[in-house]
Structures are given as C-alpha cells and as structure tokens.
Amino acid sequence: MKVTFKSWNAVAFWRWDMPADDVCGICRNPYESTCSKCKYPGDDCPLLVGDCNHSFHMHCIFSWLRQESSQEKCPMCRQRMSFNGLPRCLIQEV
C-alpha cells in the first residue's frame, strides 16, 4: 500500500526555557510575551541573560542601558551589566 500526501499543515508551539512565572524586570511582561517595541515574540527580541543571571527582553535592557541614569548597571541588582562577550558598541545600534 502506497500513501501519498497531497498537503500537510504543521502546527508548533514554542516557549523560552524559563520558569513560567518569570517576567522581564523592566517591562514586567512574561518572557513568552513581547516587549513594548515588538509586535510578535521570537527571534527579533530574544532574551538576554547578564553575567549577574538576571534576564530581560533584548530591547528592554538595551533601552535601559542607553539611559544616562542607568550608569550601565543591572536594574535588578545594580551590578555592572555585561553579557558574556557581547560588544558594547552593539547596544548603541539596536
């Protein structure tokens, strides 16, 4: 018996590998949701985890770090914000 598919529709569900009750420390939206600048969640606004282990939407933390009052510190713990080798010049471009 030979079976031939004439059409196929895939359905998928994704989520970040984070606890369900975690929210972005800046916009207070869940990680599966979007930041205030994005229309759809996903690759355009990934999560960034700092060396202090606090995580944020990419647009949220970059906006925070561009403010003069932030002094480039984590909004949660006030440690100097760094991301495992992410160049600082990238923050001004986003």
Rank of each mutant, 00 (worst) to 15 (best):
V3C: 06
N9E: 13
K6V: 12
A12D: 09
K6W: 01
G25D: 01
D21S: 12
D21C: 07
S7M: 01
C27F: 02
W8Q: 10
D22W: 15
C24I: 08
V23G: 03
D22I: 00
C24D: 04
D17L: 10
E32R: 12
V3M: 02
M18L: 10
D21P: 05
K2H: 06
E32Q: 13
R15H: 14
T4P: 00
C24S: 06
N9P: 03
P19G: 01
G25M: 07
A10R: 10
N29V: 07
W14C: 15
D22G: 03
K6L: 14
K2Q: 05
M18T: 12
A20Q: 04
N9G: 00
F13T: 15
R15Y: 10
A10S: 10
D21H: 13
R28A: 15
C27P: 03
W16P: 04
W14P: 00
C27N: 01
C27K: 02
W8P: 00
A20S: 12
T4L: 08
C24K: 05
A10P: 04
D17E: 12
Y31C: 02
D22Q: 14
G25H: 07
K6M: 08
V3I: 12
N9M: 06
D21Q: 14
V11F: 11
M18W: 02
I26Y: 07
W8Y: 10
C24M: 03
W8A: 11
R28G: 04
G25L: 00
E32N: 15
D21V: 04
A20K: 11
Y31F: 15
R28I: 15
E32W: 11
C27I: 05
R15L: 04
D17R: 09
P30H: 15
W8V: 13
R15T: 09
C24G: 08
Y31L: 08
V23F: 08
A20V: 02
V11D: 12
I26F: 02
F5N: 08
W16D: 01
A10F: 09
W16E: 01
V23H: 08
G25Y: 06
A12F: 14
R28D: 12
D21A: 11
K2L: 04
W16H: 13
W14I: 06
V11T: 14
N9R: 11
W8I: 13
C24R: 10
T4S: 11
R28M: 14
C24V: 07
K2I: 09
A10L: 13
D22L: 10
R28H: 15
T4W: 03
W14E: 12
E32V: 06
P30A: 11
A10H: 09
Y31D: 03
V23D: 07
P19M: 07
A20F: 00
C27M: 05
V3A: 07
F13R: 15
N29Y: 12
S7T: 08
V11M: 08
P19H: 09
N29R: 15
N29T: 09
P30T: 15
S7I: 01
W14A: 14
N29P: 08
S7D: 11
W14Q: 09
A10N: 09
W16C: 01
W14Y: 06
S7V: 00
W14N: 10
A20I: 04
V3F: 06
